[in-house]
Amino acid sequence: MIVRHDAGRRPGYPAAAAVFAVGMAGTTLPTPLYGLYRQELGFSELMVTVVFAVYAVGVIAVLLLAGNYSDRVGRRPVLFAALAFSALSAVCFLSEGGLPLLFAGRLLSGFSAGLFSGAATAAVLELAPEEKKSRAGFAAAAANMGGLGCGPLLAGILAQYAPWPLSLPFLAHLALLVVACVLVALLPETVDHPERWPRLTPQGVVVPSEARSVFGPSAFAAFAGFSLLGLSTAVTPAFVSGPLGVTNLAVTGAVVFSVFLGSTAGQSLTEKLGARRALPYGCFVLVAGLAMVAGSLVAELLPLLVAGALCGGLGQGLAFRAALTSVAAAAPAEHRGGTISTFFVVAYTGISLPVVGVGALTVALGLRGAGLTFTACVAVLASCTGVHLLRKPLPEQHGG
């Protein structure tokens, strides 16, 4: 049973959304700094993508092992645990102990994101009054994608214009985490009679038969969209400083921020369009964005890359929120949590495996060739998914 305790006298859903945003910002904070790590430690672009992919491994592991844990122990304990993992991740980066600690930092960051994905989203929704549920749903989506976008923007500005480029971004984030801990301590608990640290019960991969016809195309759309997010956060800094010749880290952070800005805007439009239309339209907008990204690599134009990032992010946001809405509506109530966790597992696989492929392709094709191959493959996947959804639209009751 979910209730709200003392909601009128304690911080509400905007405070929970702020905590969510701070936590997610930490997961993308290293994005504009990978070039500096490469100079300092001397590893390849392939290793950059592997370091990034470790993050997705952490997220997927938590989703499978503890995706519904906050339903049992309460939202606040899980939020505190997520903030602790985020702080430990920052400490790993601050220690500058070489590649092993970079891997450890990214893995801990993945644990943090996996815990935040369920607990923070639920807390934001549950703390909102009934008349503000829709606004709270967008607040959760905006906190998620907005936080992911603000991480590289903050790190890029601090690394470019302030001292200690490999330290100050993480010190700043630790300060924000302290504020977030205070907010969590003040938040009311929304789970009635929480258990006291019960044993973990891994839920595995769950897709009930009633949801499979909706889950398939929705998962493909999420995979394609998250592939673009993975490219943006793991490889875009190398694209910007390599083929485009821009070495300003603040610009790099702003380019990555534009993808998540577009995603937030796309998610805000999904409800107006309805999931049934937003899902195929989002796929086609994503394809247009990927075409612009590819064009920017050929023409070496930074404005075209930014336009592609915004457009691709818009399509990703449209398709992602529509896909999530559709999957949640299609799944029976007793399997809804597990089905949504499985959906996120597919999405985070999309953020990791294709990006590692790009890193491997750079060895044979160079950065530009790898980027063009990647955009072509993801565009084909998104196009096929969009065409399929136009020919066989989702059932009206699942599409909103």
Rank of each mutant, 00 (worst) to 15 (best):
P280R: 00
V255N: 04
V251H: 08
S241M: 13
V240R: 02
E300W: 12
A299G: 14
L249T: 11
A294L: 05
P303Y: 08
T252A: 07
G295H: 00
L249I: 10
R321C: 10
A288P: 02
S268A: 15
V293N: 04
Y281V: 14
E300D: 06
S296T: 10
S241G: 12
L286R: 01
S296F: 00
C283P: 02
R276K: 10
A265P: 02
L302N: 12
G266D: 07
A278G: 10
A288C: 09
L261R: 10
L305C: 09
G313C: 11
A294Q: 09
V235S: 05
K272E: 10
G289D: 07
G245D: 00
M292T: 06
T264N: 03
T236A: 15
M292R: 03
S258R: 05
L302V: 11
G308K: 04
E271S: 14
G253L: 00
R277P: 00
A275L: 09
V251G: 11
L297N: 11
L302T: 12
A309N: 14
L314F: 14
L249V: 07
R276M: 07
G242S: 06
C311I: 13
A275P: 10
S241I: 05
G274R: 02
S241D: 12
L324R: 07
L249R: 15
G315W: 14
P243E: 02
V255R: 02
S268W: 14
L269P: 05
V259A: 13
G266E: 06
L310W: 07
G242D: 07
S263G: 04
E300K: 15
E300H: 15
A307C: 13
A238D: 13
G317S: 06
G262K: 09
T264G: 06
T252P: 06
S241Q: 15
V255Y: 03
L305V: 08
G282P: 03
T236Q: 05
V287K: 12
L261F: 15
A278K: 03
Y281R: 13
A294G: 15
V259C: 12
S241C: 05
F257Q: 01
R276G: 05
Q267E: 14
F320D: 04
L279N: 01
A294W: 01
G282S: 01
A294I: 05
F239K: 00
G274I: 01
A323M: 04
L249N: 03
L286P: 05
A319F: 13
L261W: 06
F320H: 12
L261C: 10
A309G: 15
G315I: 13
L301Q: 14
R276A: 08
G317H: 04
A323L: 11
V235R: 08
V246P: 00
V285C: 03
T270H: 01
C283E: 01
L305Y: 00
V285Q: 03
R276F: 01
L301D: 13
S263V: 13
L318P: 08
S263W: 04
